[in-house]
């Protein structure tokens, strides 16, 4: 008999994975479910921006399924199915917990209920995907590394994008993000940007967390810094701006203020980008 270390996907195994997905959805989703601003954003956020955001979330889920997957055989069907299942788990978990908190109730209009659940399902579904993939024991890290290698530079950047999106989204709804930006001077802004870039570089290449990236072969410090660290910070900035726009924070606001808010939000986004590479 030949030894096969690839577990057969049975219903039992899938059910265990699904249970882990619910666990991940609760753990990753709970901070935002208990954030007041998220409830009102659920119904006040621009509908088209909300739609676009959920669409982006689905794409990120498919990407996560690809990069953090435990099955060697890559197929679009599998990854899309995984993403849909994770989204479904996110929606069900959000609806159940919001109902438990009396944030949604049957006497509310369905537009309000759906808005609240849809917005919460974004972090919950990312949690579901990570819970299923990361909390499980049968993860095939070999396949993961192989995929990252195959994807090349994009394989380096995508996890940063997912991590930045997740952490930026966790912070952006709160009033504090704007308040912090308002009370900072331009010098504070510049300092915060420099600290963000430094931490991003240190977290990924210096500290030696598990899953640390080795700087590309033959790469000088400058090359690694430009190609990966600065690219990562660029992603953090773009993701922050996108999330702020989604939440309507950029409306009728001076460019300088928007820039300051983006730098403030890019701080957690950069940390998310740095640590996501270690998680995924």
């Amino acid at each position: 008999m030949t030894e096969d270390n690839q577990p057969v996907e049975t219903n039992e195994l899938y059910a265990v994975g699904l249970a882990r997905a619910f666990g991940g959805a609760v753990i990753f989703g709970i901070p935002l479910m208990m954030t007041m601003e998220m409830w009102s954003l659920g119904f006040s956020i621009d509908r088209l921006r909300l739609l676009l955001f959920i669409g982006v979330n689905l794409l990120v889920l498919i990407g996560l399924s690809y990069f953090a997957g435990f099955e060697k055989t890559f197929s679009w069907r599998e990854d899309v199915m995984d993403a849909l299942a994770a989204f479904g788990v996110g929606v069900i978990t959000s609806a159940a917990i919001l109902a438990l908190f009396a944030v949604i109730a049957l006497d509310m209009t369905w537009t309000e209920i759906i808005g609240k659940v849809a917005l919460q399902s974004v972090p919950a579904s990312i949690g579901a995907m990570l819970g299923r993939k990361q909390l499980g024991a049968e993860q095939d890290t070999g396949a993961e590394d192989e995929r990252k290698r195959e994807a090349g530079y994009a394989g380096e950047l995508f996890p940063m994008l997912a991590g930045a999106l997740f952490l930026a989204f966790n912070m952006a709804p709160t009033e504090e993000m704007i308040l912090i930006a308002f009370q900072m001077t331009p010098w504070h802004g510049i300092a915060l940007g420099v600290v963000s870039i430094a931490l991003l570089h240190i977290f990924v290449y210096v500290l030696g967390f598990s899953g640390q990236e080795t700087p590309p072969e033959g790469g000088t410090f400058m090359r690694t810094f430009l190609h990966f660290t600065l690219a990562g910070y660029g992603i953090a900035l773009l993701v922050s701006l996108y999330v702020l726009w989604t939440f309507g924070r950029t409306e009728d606001t001076a460019l300088a203020q928007v820039a300051m808010m983006t730098v403030v939000l890019a701080f957690p986004a950069a940390l998310g980008a740095a640590t996501a590479r270690l998680v995924i």
Partner: peptide
Amino acid sequence: ASGIGLLLT
């Protein structure tokens, strides 16, 4: 699971 997910989506 993915069918329910698709419906909800």
